[in-house]
Write a protein that binds this DNA or RNA. Structure first.
Length: 428
RNA sequence: GUGGAUGUAGCUCAGUUGGCAGAGCUCCGGAUUGUGAUUCCGGCGGUCGUGGGUUCAAGCCCCAUCAUCCACCCCA
């Protein structure tokens, strides 16, 4: 019988990886909490129309990457390919955007049917942050400063660069797009094949083309600079000024275009050159029109999303994960003989009751030697030994595994106090 | 969706012009009593991704298929 395997592009996250995930999630939550953001949890499945109406009908995501299926009652449902649409839907549905300000975050799996490669999977995880009800560049700046703080905290700040751009108002963008398409249509023959296709699907994406011939052609093309509306220009200038005074370095990248239709004005990406083709580790922007587009009363909004797998890849390639993250046991307890084992259960339970120490009791038998080997491999700093000798004198043996110090016997009643003192001294 | 590379033990990988399926690591046991990491000895472990074909004989050659990785596209 053929073995059942995980679905392509959907990965198990194994025990040697989960500590890194927990570390990243913990640090992100701390930063978010320090800015007063609240968590929102949404369903993973939504009505298909939600994504069609928000992301854009002709985007690759909607056209060919969504996991869409029929519910038993015939409704078309879709595994969420991103979080913003769900978040807006949830906020709107519960009145959270009605005349109020919101600062929210969520984390969880997203689904896109793409060909997997490094940093790109069919089930992947994002941590998303969305804000509503604030139209000025101050909140744009706050979001960017928050991400910058996170990179510093994670030790990634030297490896990522901030790219910044403005897409202007919907009207300005539309005029620019029309003129750009008109110009490029006259030179279709000089465009690379991909860009020819984009001409009808997502012409702004052509600005991002990697073909040098296409880039040459673009030098003579209309420039968005000449189309931007005054309000967007001011918004962008103020944002840049705020980032300047906060000491945050950025590169204005006029070719930076986001793939989703709902973005306008500010867009930004944090990019690394350490991960191969999937360099964008965090990206977002302003989407003032989306709430209204989804049927709500108009509300300005800005947000971004981080790719968790990509951040973890980056942490690993930079070897930026602190050593303690992989340390899961403080004490490994070994008992020799059935009577000692019964006593040891009581001792380790009391230790757990009276301290925060992480104590693992050896189970499953084996020779004393093999138990010592397991103690060593566990990474614990101490082995706690109990045999007939110790039981006779009411003590346990504490054996250091990581330093060249002698083992010593400790009165069982004083064990917790002794260990807590040792670990407290270690903290200083 | 397109292109390239790769599938052999739990892991990392050898395997010659086609001729008995291998190593290292891990795991288990041992090197005189209850002391780990180094060392030495022994052991467990494989439908060679899967299905066909060629051949006296296939891990190796041919076809198909699946999966993984990398890149394109797209995106976090």
């Amino acid at each position: 019988m053929a073995k059942i395997k995980a679905i392509r592009g959907m990965n198990d996250i194994l025990p040697d990886q989960t500590p890194i995930w927990q570390y990243l999630e913990t640090e992100v939550k701390r930063v978010l909490a320090s800015y007063g953001y609240s968590e929102l949890r949404m369903p993973i499945v939504e009505q298909t129309d939600l994504f069609k109406r928000s992301i854009g009908e002709v985007t690759d995501i909607v056209e060919k990457e969504m996991y869409t299926f029929e519910d038993r009652n015939g409704d078309s449902l879709t595994l969420r390919p991103e979080g913003t649409a769900s978040c807006v839907r949830a906020c709107e549905e519960h009145g959270l955007t009605f005349n109020q300000v919101q600062r929210l975050w969520y984390m969880g799996p997203m689904f896109r049917h793409e060909r997997p490669q490094k940093g790109r999977y069919r089930q992947f995880h994002q941590i998303g942050v969305e804000t509503f009800g604030m139209q000025g560049p101050d909140i744009d700046a706050e979001l960017i400063m928050m991400t910058a703080r996170l990179w510093r905290r994670l030790g990634l700040d030297q490896a990522v660069k901030l790219h910044l751009n403005t897409l202007g108002s919907a009207e300005a963008r539309a005029r620019f797009r029309d003129d750009l398409v008109a110009y490029l249509s006259e030179h279709v023959d000089k465009l690379d094949a991909d860009s020819q296709r984009r001409l009808s699907t997502n012409p702004l994406r052509i600005l991002d083309s990697k073909e040098s011939s296409t880039q040459e052609l673009l030098n003579e093309a209309p420039h968005f600079h000449d189309y931007i509306d005054d309000e967007s220009r001011h918004h962008f200038e103020q944002l840049c000024a705020l980032l300047d005074s906060a000491g945050i370095a950025y590169e204005v990248n006029a070719r930076l275009v986001r793939g989703l239709d709902y973005y306008g004005k500010t867009v930004f990406e944090w990019i690394t050159d350490q991960l191969g083709a999937q360099g964008t580790v965090c990206a977002g922007g302003r989407y003032d029109g989306l709430v209204e587009q989804l049927g709500g009363r108009p509300a300005p909004a800005v947000g971004f999303a981080m790719g968790v797998e990509r951040l973890i890849l980056l942490l690993e390639t930079l070897q930026a994960v602190p050593e303690y993250v992989h340390q899961k046991i403080d004490i490994y307890a070994i008992a020799m003989g059935d009577d000692a084992l019964a006593d040891m259960f009581g001792i380790v339970e009391q230790l757990r009751e009276e301290s925060e120490l992480r104590v693992q009791l050896h189970c499953g038998g084996g020779s004393f030697k093999s138990q010592m080997k397991k103690a060593d491999k566990s990474g614990a700093r101490y082995a706690l030994l109990l045999g007939d000798d110790e039981r006779r004198s009411g003590v346990v043996t504490l054996k250091p595994l990581r330093e060249a110090a002698d083992q010593k016997q400790i009165n069982t009643a004083a064990l917790t106090a002794e260990l807590v003192a040792i670990y407290a001294a270690e903290q200083e």
